[in-house]
Amino acid sequence: AITFRFEGQEKAKKFYEKLMRQNLEATIHIHGDEVHVTVH
């Protein structure tokens, strides 16, 4: 698994949606202002 870190939720959401379109499995974790997107 690879984890990407984002400042702010907007960028993270766009990235997450892009992964979903590519049929990749990903989970999102929100830590205050920092958002972690883990790709499995």
Rank of each mutant, 00 (worst) to 15 (best):
Ala26Glu: 01
Thr38Asp: 03
Glu10Asn: 05
Thr3Ser: 05
Arg5Leu: 07
Asn23Val: 04
Glu10Asp: 11
Ala1Asn: 11
Glu17Val: 08
Gly8Leu: 11
His40Pro: 05
Arg21Thr: 07
Lys11Val: 11
Met20Ile: 13
Thr3Arg: 07
Val35Met: 04
His29Arg: 09
Leu24Asp: 02
Ile2Glu: 03
Arg21Asp: 05
Ile2Pro: 03
Lys18Cys: 15
Thr27Arg: 06
Gln9Met: 15
Glu25Trp: 15
Phe4Ile: 06
Glu25Thr: 14
Leu19His: 01
Lys13Thr: 09
Asp33Leu: 10
Glu7Arg: 14
Gln9Val: 15
Lys11Ser: 13
His31Arg: 09
Ile28Gln: 01
Glu34Thr: 09
Lys14Trp: 12
Lys14Ala: 13
Arg21Val: 05
Glu25Asn: 15
Thr3His: 05
Tyr16His: 04
Glu17Pro: 01
Asn23Arg: 08
Asn23Phe: 07
Ala1Leu: 12
Gln9Glu: 14
Glu10Arg: 06
Asn23Ser: 07
Asp33Gln: 09
Val39Arg: 03
Lys13Trp: 15
Thr38Phe: 09
Leu19Ala: 04
His36Thr: 12
Val37Met: 03
His31Asp: 10
Ile30Gln: 08
Arg21Ala: 13
Glu34Arg: 06
Lys14Leu: 13
Gln9Pro: 13
Leu19Ser: 01
Thr3Phe: 06
Ile28Glu: 00
Lys13Val: 12
His29Pro: 00
Met20Arg: 12
Ile28Val: 06
Thr27His: 07
Leu24Ala: 04
His29Asn: 07
Thr27Pro: 00
Ile28Lys: 01
Tyr16Gly: 01
Phe15Ser: 00
His36Pro: 00
Tyr16Met: 09
Arg5Phe: 12
Ile2Tyr: 09
Ile2Ser: 04
Lys14Gly: 05
Arg5Lys: 13
Ala26Trp: 09
Ile2Lys: 07
Gln22Met: 15
Val37Ala: 00
Glu25Ala: 14
Gly32Ser: 04
Asp33Ser: 12
Arg21His: 05
Arg21Ile: 07
Glu10Gly: 06
Arg21Ser: 11
Glu7Trp: 14
Arg21Lys: 11
Phe15Ala: 02
Glu25Arg: 15
Glu34Leu: 09
His29Val: 12
Gln9Thr: 11
Asp33Cys: 08
His31Ala: 08
Glu7Lys: 15
Val35His: 03
Glu25His: 15
Ala1Met: 12
Ala1Gly: 12
Ile28Met: 10
Ala12Gln: 01
Arg5Trp: 11
Val35Ser: 02
Lys14Asn: 08
Glu25Gly: 08
Thr38Gln: 06
Ala1Gln: 11
His31Glu: 12
His40Asn: 07
Glu7Gln: 13
Phe6Tyr: 02
Lys11Tyr: 09
Leu24His: 05
Glu25Val: 14
Glu10His: 06
Phe4Cys: 13
His36Leu: 13
Glu17Met: 13
Leu24Asn: 03
Val35Trp: 15
Gln9Ile: 15
Val37Lys: 00
Lys11Arg: 10
Gly8Ser: 15
Met20Gly: 03
Tyr16Asp: 00
Gly32Ile: 05
Ala26Val: 14
His40Asp: 04
Gln9Tyr: 15
Tyr16Ala: 05
Ala12Arg: 00
Tyr16Ile: 10
Arg5His: 09
Val35Tyr: 13
Gln22Ala: 12
Phe15Trp: 04
Arg21Glu: 09
Gln9Lys: 10
Met20Ala: 05
Arg5Ser: 07
Met20Phe: 04
Ile28Phe: 07
Phe4His: 03
Val37Arg: 00
Glu34Val: 12
Ile2Gln: 06
Lys13Gln: 14
His40Gln: 08
Ile30His: 07
Arg5Val: 15
Ala12Lys: 00
His36Lys: 05
Glu34Gly: 05
Glu34His: 12
Glu7Thr: 14
Ala12Phe: 04
Phe4Leu: 05
Gly32Asn: 06
Ala1Tyr: 14
Lys11Gln: 15
Ile30Val: 10
Glu10Ser: 07
Ala12Asp: 01
His31Asn: 10
Glu34Phe: 12
Glu7Cys: 15
Lys14Pro: 03
His40Thr: 09
Leu24Gly: 03
Thr27Asn: 05
Glu7Gly: 09
Lys18Gly: 07
Ala26Thr: 04
Phe6Arg: 01
Lys13Cys: 14
